[in-house]
Design a binder for these strands. Structure first.
Lengths: 257, 257
DNA sequence: CCGTCAGAAATGTACGTACATTCACGGTAG
DNA sequence: CTACCGTGAATGTACGTACATTTCTGACGG
């Protein structure tokens, strides 16, 4: 039986909400979240007040509730398709109607001290390396190189990556879903090897996208993708309400303005 | 007196909320938003139901309510510093500690049918044209060209843009704040004139950023900025909670990974 | 003419009740 | 042992009441 200060200026539902957040963060509710009626008894407030507090927690995404069952602590809502420039890239190709496929140029285990360091791993740890040339239509669009810790990604060694996405395979074969990532996007000119592979026109530049992805605070991927600048543009919208959002939809494949 | 379908599967408060959104978008409430009691009468539901619908609208930021006064339609919360790649660019320079300044290469009124069309204006309408070369430290960083409708932006003709931002001047002199924008970001090689102006190394590419900005659905700016790719990188983070966000903070000025 | 103050009006908080809807569990029949 | 169904429990919806708190307005007085 817990006490809330009545008539202290702070609304009861707010006090209740804050106390629940505190207990939630302490891990007290990891097994089961108390039901509304239990909270009514515990805090000696009306169900209305409890619901007001829970409603706040729900819109904040901390708990989920459904009819007939007790509220539960929200599991970190895994990102199905990691967002960002790369997602924007491939979904925009899809919307354009051009057929996509990949040519797998390498899929093996190897050690790479430099990349391992980027993943915050020891240099000698084996990594799964996947290199693909991605086509949109008959022309190459991007060169994609990914390193993942072999300890996590080994089940992917015999996967067929010519048509499926890395994240799909990763989720299906290992249950890992990325929940956080970071991208650095640069404009540069490709080196001769990349230019040849991508069939880049002589005067075309490229996007160089470095992505680090993590799942539950563990590094999962380090990725370097080189995208032809003459066939792709990043498109973004921002507004006071929605903030800054990449819009994979529009104007993605190259055309004059 | 409006009717809601009772027992139709859809909750009353949701029907009410949707109807209010519809009426709100139609501009019916631009003068005054009805109070809770008025809605109770109009829709013949309890105040509780009305509050549930309004609560949703409030968390969505469509209306604001305070004690003792009627709810009001939320004024579009103006963006002080328009977000996006350009904001990321200049704030990251600031954080790096490098001094910034601009060389104004042009500031005049002119007509340009092509740009006017991009602003959804007639070709003969005069535009204010501002062209600046932006420095970070002693080296050029970006070439920035902006067109604004002269009808709105004429008070800016005698402004000094060597150190102040366009948006600051625009807000101070005309009261206009952008509330929506759209960017297209491309990787390309600069033309010879741009390369010379920017002191671009021979093998460096550039970001070409096209931005269209609007305030209250009226086109306000059309902007073309060319940023040296060897001195700038876009940095973004995404997470399940926060979505995709540009992070002007880190690693913005060029350095090896 | 202007400042002050009381009252009206509106929203915020908090209580209560009733019923609908859905889910989980356990018992029963096959 | 399994499949089905009914009961109980939980949340969702919707009604009602009361009072607190804040804001606005209009009347009154200086």
């Amino acid at each position: 039986m817990r006490k809330l200060e009545r008539g202290s200026g702070e609304p009861l539902w707010k006090q209740l909400q804050e106390d629940l957040v505190r207990r939630l963060r302490s891990g007290e509710f990891d097994d089961a979240f108390p039901g509304e009626l239990a909270l009514v008894e515990e805090y000696e407030v009306s169900r209305h007040t409890v619901r007001q507090a829970l409603g706040q927690l729900r819109t904040d995404g901390l708990i989920v509730a459904e009819r007939g069952r007790q509220p539960r602590v929200a599991t970190a809502p895994e990102i199905r398709q990691p967002m960002g420039a790369l997602y924007s890239l491939f979904s925009s190709v899809e919307e354009s109607g051009l057929p996509q496929h990949s040519v797998v140029r390498a899929l093996d285990l190897r050690a790479d001290g430099v990349v391992a360091a980027r993943l915050n791993l020891e240099g000698s740890i084996p990594l799964l390396y996947l290199e693909r040339l991605r086509y949109a239509g008959d022309e190459p669009l991007a060169l994609d190189r990914v390193w993942l810790p072999a300890s996590l990604a080994e089940p992917l060694l015999d996967a067929d990556f010519t048509h499926t996405s890395l994240y799909n395979e990763l989720a299906e074969r290992t249950g890992i879903n990325l929940d956080h990532g970071r991208e650095d996007i640069r404009a540069m000119n490709p080196n001769p090897a990349e230019r040849a592979l991508l069939h880049c026109p002589a005067d075309a530049a490229v996007f160089s996208i470095i992505r680090q992805g993590t799942a539950q605070n563990r590094p999962v991927e380090w990725r370097h993708t080189v995208v032809r600048g003459d066939r792709f543009a990043l498109s973004a919208e921002y507004s006071a309400n929605a903030g800054y959002r990449l819009t994979p939809a529009t104007t993605a494949l190259a055309q004059a303005w």
